[in-house]
């Protein structure tokens, strides 16, 4: 049984033109111990998907439809108290900006201890010891000294390590990482990804890695879902996606990654931008930007084509299928 199963998730926000969907019928699943990359441009709905899974969508936004099953329980039907028991203990989240995601008035140690104290079952002393051990585990060299530091006294890389420590200190089964390396230097990025990979193996947890960076996906993910305009448009193992993308959007994304070994006049880009929620074309949302689009693409949202057991694409004419 999958650890996390998302079916037809739809998250909407009110706007002047009525409610618009930031996530429109997203379905995907995540097995225990699996690392799933969720890739897409800004505005594709990947962050909103992440917050929806934690049921932390900022009001007035709300989850309008779908189901989220986590460890066999339907999260969307849990009451808030039950949901709170899962957050930080069974499922955790880390964010892009480690400085703004840590509270400036509490020490690093206090913040790493907090999830344990909130969920109970430990004394302050045990929480303190475990927090210290966790800080050391995420690679903070002098954890005992850093314990009493405040976030603004640490470097960006250290802050993200602290964030990882507080997210994982209760050993959750699922970590949702929302662009955890996008704000960091490239060298630090690699270290943080390696750390996440190590911790994932050690703790046997699953990671939902949300990123716009295919390099990050290649580095860490087992499988990847490509998101476009609130929908999952392709799902495949990482190697398959990089070798033979089936959705024209995935193919476009891959082409626009600069290749170190190759000299090119100009990096190919996908022309146009993601349509704004509320201005979705009637058919395939990618059709206006798609080099292969024709009349069939503008009629209705394309059905999901299963290409192989573990490869599917929401396209009328997936690329692999016609040569």
């Amino acid at each position: 049984m999958a650890l996390l199963e998302v079916e037809g998730l739809r998250t909407v926000f009110p706007s002047q033109e009525g409610e618009v969907s930031a996530v429109e019928g997203a379905s995907f699943s995540l097995s225990e111990g699996e690392v799933l990359g969720l890739v897409g441009e800004s505005g594709s709905g990947k962050s909103v998907t992440a917050f929806s899974l934690m049921r932390l969508v900022q009001a007035p936004g709300r989850i309008a439809a779908g189901s989220v099953r986590f460890e066999g329980r339907d999260l969307l039907s849990l009451d808030e108290r039950e949901m709170r028991k899962l957050r930080g203990r069974r499922m955790s989240m880390i964010f892009q900006e480690p400085l703004s995601s840590l509270n400036p008035v509490w020490t690093v140690g206090q913040q790493v201890m907090e999830p344990m104290l909130l969920h109970g079952g430990v004394t302050r002393r045990e929480a303190r010891e475990r927090a210290l051990a966790m800080l050391a585990r995420v690679g903070i060299a002098d954890a005992a000294r850093r314990f009493n530091d405040y976030p603004h006294q640490l470097s960006g890389g250290l802050r993200q390590r602290v964030m990882i420590a507080l997210a994982l200190v209760c050993e959750p089964k699922l970590l949702i990482a929302d662009e955890p390396t996008s704000a960091l230097d490239v060298t630090i990025q690699a270290q943080i990804l390696e750390l996440l990979r190590d911790l994932q193996r050690e703790l046997g947890m699953a990671i939902l890695m949300i990123t716009h960076d295919l390099g990050v996906v290649a580095e860490i993910a087992d499988r990847v879902n490509v998101m476009y305009a609130g929908r999952i448009v392709e799902s495949a193992p990482v190697e398959t996606l990089f070798r033979a993308p089936a959705h024209p959007y995935s193919a476009g994304l891959l082409q626009s990654v600069p290749d170190m070994g190759e000299e090119r006049e100009r990096l190919p880009t996908i022309r146009g931008i993601v349509p704004r929620p509320g201005e979705m074309p009637p058919g395939c949302a990618f059709a206006p930007r798609c080099p292969y689009a024709d009349a069939a693409c503008t009629v209705a949202p394309p059905p999901v084509h299963t290409l192989t057991d573990d490869h599917a694409a929401a396209c009328v004419r997936p690329l692999g299928a016609h040569g």
């Binding site: 934690m54 932390l56 900022q58 108290r81 709170r84 028991k85 899962l86 957050r87 930080g88 203990r89 955790s92 989240m93 964010f95 900006e97 703004s100 995601s101 840590l102 509270n103 400036p104 008035v105 509490w106 907090e114 999830p115 909130l118 969920h119 964030m163 507080l166 997210a167």
Partner: peptide, 27 residues
């Protein structure tokens, strides 16, 4: 209340009282 660290507190499993008194108010 819209600061990211308030979301972090909620993501840790904090209830509204803890969120407001420990994370929002001191700031």
């Amino acid at each position: 209340i819209n600061e990211l660290y308030v979301t972090t507190a909620r993501a840790k499993g904090a209830g509204e009282a803890v969120v407001v008194l420990r994370h929002v108010l001191p700031n």
